[in-house]
């Protein structure tokens, strides 16, 4: 595993830890989109099906379990925890996220590496992950007050796929891996969607000001 891949995984893990920290310590999910969190559950559930069929490494298995368990528990907290769920911005989190699921699935049926159940679901998870942040970005734009943990959560979540882009370049150049257009283009789209957010996040960080996105 190269340094970019490891940094990407750690950033991804860090983003989830930051979100769990917010939920546990502040007992709040204000500013967090349940729609995005539900999409991540679907992303992980369809991508990590191979946990039962293929063993890669101890690291790989542990990380998959962590991502599955944490994504399910975040959704559980936001929906069912008696305190946390009251902080959910239901009225502002109105993105119709199921409208993202069907086009991604159709695209995975049409454009995939191999037409098998496992491969189509894996491809679907890549396409869906690329756009899963959209409800969260819309909610952030509507939020007057973006607290630090929420801002950092979204930043780390965006940085993770950006680091994967470097990992893919490295694998292609140094390890002579094959062309892998499906994850590459999905990852590129995913990272590009954060461009605006990154710009304002870094600007506010430099000026030591509170993060606010223009409407």
């Amino acid at each position: 595993m190269n340094v970019f891949r490891l940094a990407g995984d750690m950033t991804h893990l860090l983003s989830i830890m930051v979100l769990l920290l917010k939920i546990h310590s502040m007992k709040s999910c204000a500013g967090i989109s349940l729609k995005t969190q539900e999409l991540y559950v679907l992303v992980f559930a369809t991508r990590y099906l191979d946990i039962f069929t293929t063993y890669f490494s101890f690291y790989n298995t542990v990380m998959k379990i962590v991502f599955l368990v944490t994504s399910f528990s975040i959704v559980w907290y936001m929906r069912h925890h008696k305190v946390v769920r009251q902080t959910y911005d239901r009225d502002q989190d109105t993105f119709r996220h199921h409208l993202l699921v069907i086009p991604c699935f159709l695209l995975a049926l049409l454009i995939n590496h191999r037409f098998t159940v496992r491969e189509v679901l894996w491809t679907f998870s890549l396409y869906l992950e690329a756009v899963a942040i959209l409800p969260q970005l819309v909610l952030l734009q509507r939020s007057r007050n973006i607290d630090n943990l929420t801002g950092n959560y979204v930043f780390f979540l965006g940085a993770y796929r950006g680091l994967y882009l470097f990992n893919w370049i490295y694998r292609y150049m140094a390890e002579k891996s094959q062309l892998r257009w499906i994850p590459w283009i999905s990852g590129l789209v995913q990272t590009a969607l954060y461009a605006d957010f990154f710009y304002y996040y870094i600007k506010s960080w430099k000026k030591r000001e509170k993060l606010q996105l223009p409407a």
Binding site: D50, F56, N60, W122, S177, Q178
Partner: peptide, 10 residues
């Protein structure tokens, strides 16, 4: 089978 080549990523 080149499944393993890229499915080891998360």
């Amino acid at each position: 089978d080149d499944y393993d080549d890229y499915h080891d990523e998360l």
